[in-house]
Write a protein that binds this DNA or RNA. Structure first.
Lengths: 196, 196
DNA sequence: GTCTATATCCAGATAGAC
DNA sequence: GTCTATCTGGATATAGAC
């Protein structure tokens, strides 16, 4: 986790977000009470409400922070590769690495049902990072690297296998680190969508 | 939904399970109160507790019923096809059909975070139907229909794309019914794993 | 087996001193 | 900005008549 990170710059806000991520992903949002967050973060009820307004505000701030971080990393990937295939593969590599190093981050991004406690929020699948991934695949079809087909099917195919593996890993079904599966899963994706 | 089904045989148990599935999948388990279930099912608090013991008992009974149903359908698929490829494709077709006809069923099976409210439960990915799907893929490798590779990667590849599409459809991102994507998504899966 | 009425608890949120 | 003390509502669950 980024515990060191949060301890370094001590401010209450960061400590609350750090505690909340841990608790929300491990016990679930609704099983986590404000008193829980007070205990784990060491920040008082009053301060928490001062910073975030209400419990949902914590969840929102956390989500926003993680989406921004993801988006920044995807932009870097865009800039450091010049084929769609290399970008897509690099995204999978990134997701695998985050899953291994910061499982809570990946859990909160992918597998928490945000809309249950943030009703106004759009589904995760339509968040910026996910749209970005779909755009990468479309560019691959435009450039001829990937064969033409329905864009949604193409994106689901390119990333679907990797996302399943992440799911399995976070659920404790896969014992070995995801990186060991990278070549194989990318090979499958490539066979499925590469230009004829 | 199987509203007709539940209305036909009226007993309280069925009406509660039906209401609970609707409410749990649409608002989430924790946003659903017993009074909510009383209102929607028309069954009283006392009866509900008599039948299910506690709120979690409703969720458990529901999950068990759906897993059993799934498993029965998978068995039928096993019996009515003689190649692994045909079975896997048929599973995807089934999942697509259920998603379209009874979205709550699919949501409750795949995307509800059961462990948040049923702590002792194993992850869904290790439930009978999921294991069954993985076994189908392994048999395909044994028979030579699918090329040999890591079984988990193979299973994630065969079903990952379809499961992504189901996710997108349930989130309202895909406008067209899943059946229209069946041929295309299966083509992708087949290219990815078919024997060299 | 089904119902109504009710007990108990603890969550989210606020007040107001420092 | 941070804290402690406190309010209030509504949730789960029970009691006990029918």
């Amino acid at each position: 986790m980024n515990a060191r990170h949060a301890t370094a710059l001590n401010p209450a806000r960061e400590r609350v977000l750090d505690a909340a991520m841990r608790l929300f992903t491990r016990q679930g949002y609704f099983n986590t009470s404000i008193p829980d967050i007070v205990r784990v973060s060491g920040v008082s009820t009053g301060s928490i409400y001062h910073h975030f307004g209400d419990k949902e505000g914590i969840a929102r701030a956390l989500f926003e922070a993680l989406v921004n971080r993801m988006e920044a990393e995807f932009d870097r990937i865009d800039r450091s590769h010049d084929t769609a295939a290399a970008r897509c593969r690099s995204v999978i590599e990134l997701l695998f690495r985050i899953t291994e190093d910061e499982p809570d981050v990946m859990t909160y991004m992918l597998f928490v049902k945000h809309r249950e406690f943030m009703p106004e929020m759009a589904p995760v699948c339509s968040s910026q990072p996910f749209r970005h991934m779909r755009r990468m695949v479309e560019q691959g079809m435009d450039s001829g690297e990937f064969r033409r087909q329905d864009p949604m099917v193409a994106a689901a195919t390119v990333f679907g296998g990797a996302l399943r593996l992440i799911n399995l890993r976070l659920d404790g079904i896969l014992e070995r680190p995801l990186q060991e599966y990278l070549d194989e899963v990318w090979d499958c994706a490539w066979r499925a969508v590469s230009g004829t």
